[in-house]
Write a protein that binds this DNA or RNA. Structure first.
Lengths: 202, 202
DNA sequence: TGAGTTCTGCATCGATCGATGCGGAAGTCG
DNA sequence: CGACTTCCGCATCGATCGATGCAGAACTCA
């Protein structure tokens, strides 16, 4: 196979698409899908609307790609947390990661997966449904992880993986809302420590 | 004082302002501040934009009044919950009320105070800040209630009222997000029961 | 009845929304 | 070089945004 990177014919792109997407992600994260206008987005990305449409398709596709980048970037703590050895460690790392990510001193407060498009008009329905699916994927993955923990004997047989996953995600979404309101990181972490003290809620 | 209701001079209003506000509330609740256009609002209210502006001021004022109506209507369970005899009863009633209100079979799912304007553009900043204040008021009132519970000996002296209030509100916001995603009422209630099993988180 | 007040239907405002057409610039090829 | 491909700056599209001017309708007063 040709690993050789041949430059494609035609005029090369005058900007870094990855960096432009990162800028777009930050705008969507801070203002939400509907609150982020094309003008605001393209200005932050440093490109014209023409280049944006040529490179990313349209606003909804741009949002979709920004969400993917969010999942693999700021939200990568989720994947790492799921690999922790015990269910308790998973839950603890998940909540800690949520708090860290939603209260970064530099960068938007809150979670893109929550505030990106929670309630929208017709124009934002695509983004809203996309985020509903995104959140549901997170829940399902976490539930599966807890089911495995029951099978492994890490969690007692009486534990309810679906309930535990619902609890942890609920806590995470609630933290995201608190963070969007500007609540401090330390206060949220103290609360979260207490919230997981009764784990696994039996 | 004159209790006699004199009809004001001039042409009387051709619609019920209270009912129009209720309709507007439902639209804001479902689509959020930015997602609710004037056209959508006035169509649901059954009046013209002229009448809307004459009666309610502008879109932001309309939202403000809709939020007040929300507080005294669908969200009135908060006031009732705070009057419960014990802190545990307060927390339980608060969460149960949240679940009931955010998952009404008829009517929008979720909480206006959360999804009304969580992340917005410049145009929605007023509504966003209004809701931040609304949520903060709820937190403060709840914290005060828990402080009273400590003073009364209802909660142990080691209990942290601020932490408990932060926990209950976080749970409530998380439930609101789950409800906006369409999660069923029963599942949320089971989860909430388990979440309050460790009360008061010591 | 006539003066004064208020409400409403219609038309429309400038601004912004997301999205596109076009022609020239900037490259890779033979 | 000349042919071909791609990208970008500029202008602009129709639709919708929130908001208003105006004239007449509908009412209370004296």
């Amino acid at each position: 196979m040709e690993t050789e990177k041949r430059r494609p014919a035609g005029r090369p792109r005058g900007f870094d698409a990855d960096e432009a997407l990162e800028r777009a992600l930050l705008v969507f994260w801070e203002h939400g899908y509907e609150g982020a206008s094309l003008a605001t987005l393209t200005e932050a990305m440093g490109i014209s609307t023409t280049s944006m449409y040529a490179t990313f398709g349209n606003k909804e596709e741009l949002f979709r790609k920004a969400l993917d980048r969010y999942t693999e970037g700021p939200s990568a703590y989720v994947t790492r947390a799921l690999e922790k050895p015990t269910a308790f460690d998973v839950a603890t790392a998940l909540i800690a990661g949520t708090i860290q990510t939603t209260t970064r001193p530099a960068g938007p407060h809150g979670c893109l997966g929550v505030q990106g498009a929670l309630a929208t008009g017709d124009a934002g329905r695509g983004a809203r449904d996309l985020l509903i699916g995104w959140r549901d994927d997170g829940y399902t993955t976490l539930r599966d992880r807890f089911e495995r923990a029951v099978d492994d004997g890490d969690l007692p047989p009486t534990a309810d993986p679906a309930l535990l996953a619902r609890y942890v995600t609920t806590l995470g979404y609630g933290i995201a809302v608190q963070a969007a309101s500007g609540i401090a990181r330390d206060e949220l972490q103290e609360m979260a420590d207490a919230a997981l003290r009764g784990w696994p809620l039996l």
